[in-house]
Design a binder for these strands. Structure first.
Length: 697
DNA sequence: GTGCCTCGAGTTCC
DNA sequence: CTCGAGGCAC
């Protein structure tokens, strides 16, 4: 190869790799397989080795973080890695403590000790030790599935490769991988000129998630332990004891970690940490509190993605001023019209912000903003940009008015009685809504089809390749049409089709969530799936409920209000699923009553295998039974009792009927206990219930 | 009827 | 992440 040919090839490679990086990171639509990507990177490296004088300023090899994380293997966490709820004021911290007390039903005199430590701005990492040897390191990822960074972590000096003999057989240490401020500055100087990292957090993330661990080794990464995941045994009964054990085993832990006996102590520690913030060798964005007693942590459990026993008390967000250039609107999958602020680009908290949501018309009115105004911006929770205040002095100007026509389909825009949002009335004909629904369908929490990101869904929809979800599963018949498309090579087409085939079998909960029925999100879809277990069972319920709804008519002498109440009650009874009330029941039935939706769902189901969902529970003598709690519970809250019952496979009901199997009665139980006794239903007190739970393990 | 808690839906940047 | 609002306990 001549030098001229090599130079041309290097230019070509730089462009291809940059494009692949951009597609992967920003558009979520990779066109190259991992192997193809690696081949490009390898060829680039070899050419540069042969012609060192030709190394380009924009060479992929000189770019920081050039190996995208896509190329790291995925690992499922045994115990999910959640995030913490945030608080921004002392009041919110007090609220948190109040919630803890209420959940645990603690007497007022009982103190709740908290641990407090700085919240380091790095990236969470889980280190799994088996037989006291480090066997796996993983990033947090989405909390359920992270990336395998074992070989990278092996290069971090702070992280022990082995635990001492007294450590348990299985132990997952969790903590933060970070880069010290001074090391970050030095690294950027060393990388001089080329694409430098914006902040230590990005530097740490970019350095850890390298395919080539020798790159990680050259980066000054550090680690601080603050928790744990799966463990075969725990070296203590409190957070503070376990953290002390982690330190004894050789893990760095924060020297600002303290145990606080009271709320005031914890807040004082927050103030102390905040005062020292600038002098600390690493970036922090707040203080983390945890309930010290581990038995309480276990009882408090987790809700959604965050444990009830922990809280991140964040420092006030950084703010910046900028100009509001325009207010645009966009249409969501439900037709909601959302106003978005287009801003003069400005740096806030280390990133350049150009857009910010304005949520709704009320928010715009509250802020009194119009295009041209100066506004104060912050990144809420250091992530989502938010307009805090309008800085343009009040002067009489025409207020910004909400569009009356949908920006996508020109249908009328309407605001329902008592609702804040304006919605496009175009429904099924609005292309924006159709595309958004398709995007929801393929999104990670729904069908999770890799290679079918926002950009491609939009392209395919526009060109008529995909009009409804079922069309996605018929793309395999259009392989030649796909191949004929620009920028879609054979490998990408086959990768995409393979990804689609992988999802041809789907669990009922994901299936229901993916349909995008109003008010039916992930949790509600799971409730429905657990209740009906199979697709056939679910459809049977829908048909029966639709028949009930058809048959509803006011009876003679019934007032409209009474009729509405009866209608709501009967629909809720027909759907018969926990946490589904009148509003969701109505939305569900509205969806299936629409013939077009029904056709779309039937068509889709015909392409798929929908697998049954069974609620995984521990076997116990209340599995499959209906339990009612009545009276007051003394050692636990109702929520906790309910959670226990559900974990044992029981259904919790609020009232006693012939279908009830067990009534757990505390002091002050009245009519429900009496009714249970009259019906000959088994009853027990709280101690009996605890024994039953303990029996199940 | 009221108030709490949780969920759903929409959003930003890399 | 934030907001509004649905569901349910009190």
């Amino acid at each position: 190869m001549t030098e001229a040919e090599a130079a041309a090839r290097l230019a070509d490679l730089a462009a291809q790799i940059a494009r692949a990086d951009r597609l992967y990171h920003q558009e979520d639509a990779p066109e190259l397989s991992d192997a193809a990507y690696d081949a490009l990177v390898r060829e680039n490296r070899e050419l540069e080795a042969a012609f060192p004088q030709l190394v380009r300023a924009d060479s992929p090899s000189r770019r920081v973080g050039s190996a995208p994380a896509a190329h790291l293997a995925k690992v499922a966490h045994k115990v999910s890695m959640g995030s913490l709820d945030n608080a921004f004021s002392a009041e919110e911290v007090a609220d948190f403590l109040g919630r803890v007390r209420r959940f645990l039903k603690l007497p007022e005199a009982e103190p709740v000790a908290l641990t407090a430590e700085p919240k380091i701005d790095g990236l969470s990492c889980s280190l799994r030790y088996e037989g006291r040897r480090l066997v796996l390191a993983a990033t947090r990822g989405d909390g359920q599935v992270g990336e395998n960074v074992t070989s990278n972590v092996a290069t971090i000096a702070d992280i022990p490769q082995a635990l001492p003999a007294e450590a348990p057989d299985v132990f997952e240490v969790r903590g933060e991988v970070y880069m010290a401020k001074a090391d970050f500055t030095a690294l950027n100087e060393r990388l001089a000129g080329e694409r430098v990292f914006a902040n230590p957090r990005n530097a740490a993330a970019g350095s850890l998630r390298q395919k080539d661990a020798t790159v990680t080794a050259s980066r000054p990464l550090r680690f601080l332990a603050h928790g744990w995941g799966e463990t075969s045994a725990l070296p203590g009964d409190t957070q503070a004891e376990v953290v002390a054990a982690l330190r004894d085993w050789g893990f760095p832990v924060s020297d600002l970690f303290v145990r606080c006996a009271t709320l005031d102590d914890a807040l004082a520690h927050y103030a102390r940490i905040e005062a020292r913030r600038a002098d600390l060798p690493f970036d922090i964005d707040g203080v983390v509190y945890k309930v010290d007693r581990l038995d309480w942590q276990r009882r408090l459990g987790t809700v959604g993605r965050a444990p009830r026993w922990g809280l991140a008390h964040k420092f006030p967000a950084e703010r910046a001023q900028t100009t509001l250039n325009a207010i645009d609107t966009q249409v969501g999958r439900t037709g909601k019209i959302t106003p978005v602020a287009r801003l003069e680009p400005v740096t806030v908290g280390g990133v350049v912000v150009t857009n910010a949501t304005l949520h709704n018309a009320d928010e715009i009115e509250r802020l009194g903003v119009r295009p041209g105004d100066r506004v104060l911006l912050q990144r809420a929770g250091d992530v989502i940009p938010q307009i805090v205040e309008n800085l343009t002095p009040d002067e009489p100007r025409a207020p910004w008015s909400f569009p009356t026509r949908c920006p996508a389909c020109d249908s009328a825009v309407a605001r329902e009685e008592g609702e804040v949002d304006y919605r496009c009335t175009g429904g099924l004909i609005c292309p924006a809504q159709r595309v958004e629904r398709l995007m929801h369908f393929v999104s990670r929490r729904a069908f999770d089809i890799t290679g079918l990101g926002a950009v491609r869904v939009e392209d395919f929809f526009r060109d008529g390749l995909i009009e409804s979800p079922a069309d996605i599963f018929r793309l395999r018949d259009k392989r030649d049409v796909l191949l004929a498309r620009e920028r879609l090579a054979e490998t990408s087409v086959d990768n995409l089709l393979a990804a689609i085939e992988e999802r041809r079998t789907v669990s009922l909960d994901r299936f229901l969530f993916a349909l995008g029925i109003r008010h039916v999100g992930e949790v509600t879809a799971r409730d429905l799936a657990r209740r009906y277990e199979s697709y056939a069972g679910f459809v049977a319920m829908i048909d029966a409920a639709l028949a009930v709804r058809e048959g509803l008519a006011p009876v003679l002498g019934e007032t409209e209000r009474k009729f509405e109440l009866r209608r709501a009650r009967e629909l809720v009874a027909a759907v018969a699923t926990p946490n589904i009330g009148p509003e969701v029941a109505e939305a569900l039935l509205d969806f299936f009553a629409e013939p077009h939706n029904r056709a779309v769902v039937d068509d889709l189901a015909g392409e798929l295998t929908v697998t049954d969902v069974r609620h995984e529970t521990r076997a116990s003598r209340v599995s499959g039974k209906t339990v009612v709690f009545t009276g007051s519970l003394e050692t636990m809250s109702r929520d906790e009792a309910k959670a226990q019952a559900e974990a044992l496979g029981a259904k919790v009901s609020g009232s006693v009927s012939a279908k009830t199997d067990l009534v757990v009665a505390g002091p002050g139980a009245g009519s429900k206990l009496k009714k249970a006794q009259d019906l000959g239903i088994e009853t027990m007190n709280e101690t009996g219930w605890q024994a039953l739970v303990a029996d199940a393990g």
